[in-house]
Amino acid sequence: MKMEKMIQKKAYELGYEKCGIIPVNMLDGYREKIEERIRKVPESEQFFV
């Protein structure tokens, strides 16, 4: 099973109604939001680098 499908399947198991995966370059402002998240929750950095 491809990683994308595994993530989607787990998201549905956890109760999410929708889950999709797109290339990061399609997310305007993504970097700024991630940097903000890391500042607020420093222990989350390991998931974004």
Score class of each variant (00 low, 15 high):
E32A: 06
M1A: 14
R37L: 12
F47A: 14
E32D: 05
G15P: 00
G29R: 01
E35L: 08
L14K: 03
P42Q: 03
V41N: 10
V24Q: 14
M1L: 14
I21R: 11
K18G: 13
S44Q: 06
M6C: 07
N25A: 07
K9V: 08
V49R: 01
I34N: 04
E4V: 01
M6G: 11
K5L: 15
M6T: 09
N25G: 13
P42T: 00
I21C: 06
E45K: 05
S44F: 12
R39E: 01
R39T: 13
E32I: 06
P23S: 12
K18R: 15
P23K: 09
S44P: 06
K5Y: 10
G29P: 07
E45P: 03
R39A: 02
P23V: 00
F47Q: 01
G20Q: 05
E43N: 06
F48P: 10
V41A: 01
E17K: 08
R37D: 04
G29K: 08
I21A: 07
E45M: 04
D28N: 08
E17R: 09
Q8D: 13
I38G: 01
I21Y: 03
Q46D: 11
A11H: 05
R39F: 04
I38S: 01
E36D: 05
E4G: 08
Y30A: 15
Y30K: 11
L14Y: 02
Y16E: 03
F47M: 10
I7F: 13
Y30V: 02
I34A: 05
